[in-house]
Computed example of a mutant assay.
Amino acid sequence: MVEKRTRPQDKIRCDACPVLCYIADGRSGACDRYANHDGQLVRLDPLTVIETTEQKLVPFLGDDATDWDGDIVHSGQPFITAVGAGTTYPDYKPAPFIVAQQIDGVDMITVVTEGIFSYCGVKVKIDTDRHIGEERDVVRVDGEPIGHVMTSEYGSKMLSLGGVEHLTGGTKAEGRITCDALLKLCNRDAVEMEIGEHHTRLTIQAGRAPIIDGDEERLMRVGCGSAAIGMFARQWFGHADEVVVVDDHITGVLSEHQAGKLLDVPPTGIRIHGRRSTPGRY
């Protein structure tokens, strides 16, 4: 005989998604979107409506455009965002906010729902030449894994943070710490983290130099040796017979490089002891 489950005392059942949480008074459900407030199911994220914007918008049609004033969100009328508008996923119930309006005599119906946080992630580009960890090393915040080190791109170190494995695939603490770190990074706040078994300490913040093991970065190469020659060959031309840009990725030689050939830089006889990739690139 199967025992019939009864509703826990002093709890309400949320039907916003198939999880059907029982929520005690003063607590939130598993999604952290709905809560029990004095026996009433309430949303924790308020619906955000933008009526005006103080952001400086950049007209993508140019300054000479006469048929558009640069207003992206039509700030003269309410602009409904997805923040606080939807519910969890998968969801059989319709979105709780459906907006209707007329534009040029045409009835427009807008259904707004928010993207679920378990799909969210951030790709972080760190401008540093210093070694922060091996590829695939785990990135941790407060001891919880939130991502990993990726392949370097254009000389910068790259991190992949967030995603479903960390937000909902691990413990609840891991998911909350991952979500908190993503929100801080996207809001231009500083986040402290550790990388790999060597526990490299890293503090990153949008628009600020990274702090690695307590030292703030001051300088960074603008590219590999080949890239440097491509950018600065004309400035060097006439001031030096030869320029060799030594780099741990690609070392460049001006007279052999394509940039040097286009400037008619004569060969100097200097040879690099190493494996040549293409002319002027080792």
Results as ranks from 00 to 15, higher is better:
Glu165Leu: 12
Leu185Met: 03
Gly155Cys: 10
Pro145Cys: 04
Cys179Val: 14
Glu153Val: 15
Val149Lys: 03
Asp142Gln: 15
Glu197Cys: 11
Glu144Val: 13
Asp189Gly: 11
Gly143Lys: 10
Ser160Glu: 11
Glu153Gly: 07
Leu183Gln: 04
Ala173His: 02
Glu192Ile: 08
Val139Lys: 12
Lys172Cys: 05
Val139Leu: 11
Glu194Met: 11
Ala181Trp: 09
Arg188His: 12
Asp142Cys: 14
Tyr154Thr: 10
Gly162Asn: 03
Gly175Asn: 02
Arg188Glu: 03
Val191Asp: 00
Asp180Pro: 09
Leu182Thr: 06
Gly196Trp: 05
Gly196Phe: 08
Glu197Met: 15
Arg140Thr: 08
Arg140Pro: 11
His148Cys: 13
Glu153Ala: 12
Val139Phe: 09
Met158Arg: 01
Cys186Ile: 15
Leu185Thr: 03
Arg176Trp: 13
Asp142Thr: 14
Ser156Gln: 10
Glu194Asp: 07
Asp180Trp: 15
Thr168Ala: 00
Met193Ser: 05
Met158Glu: 01
Thr151Phe: 11
Met150Ala: 09
Val149Ser: 02
Arg140Phe: 07
Asn187Met: 15
Gly175Arg: 08
His148Glu: 07
Ala181Tyr: 03
Cys186Tyr: 13
Ala190Leu: 13
Val191Gln: 00
Val141His: 10
Glu144Ile: 14
Met158Asn: 02
Ala190Asp: 08
Met193Pro: 11
Asp180Tyr: 12
Asp189Gln: 14
Val164Lys: 12
Gly147His: 05
Thr178Lys: 10
Gly175Ser: 01
Val138Glu: 12
Leu183Pro: 04
Met150Val: 12
Gly155Thr: 05
Val139Ser: 06
Asp180Val: 08
Arg188Gln: 08
Gly170Ile: 01
Glu153Ser: 09
Gly155Ala: 06
Glu197Trp: 14
Leu182Gln: 04
Met150Ile: 10
Asp189Pro: 10
Val149Met: 03
Ile177Cys: 02
Glu197Lys: 15
Ala181Ile: 02
Ser152Met: 09
Ser156Phe: 10
Cys186Gln: 04
Met158Ser: 03
Glu194Cys: 04
Leu185Ala: 00
Leu159Cys: 01
Gly155Ser: 08
Ile195Gln: 05
Gly196Lys: 13
Val139Tyr: 06
Lys184Thr: 07
Gly162Arg: 03
Asp189Leu: 14
Ile146Ala: 05
Gly163Met: 00
Val138Gln: 13
Met150Asp: 09
Gly143Glu: 08
Gly155Phe: 06
Thr178Gln: 01
Ala173Tyr: 02
Glu153Arg: 14
Arg188Trp: 09
Met193Thr: 06
His166Ala: 02
Pro145Lys: 03
Leu161Trp: 01
Gly147Lys: 05
Glu194Ala: 05
Gly147Arg: 11
Lys172Thr: 04
Glu144Trp: 12
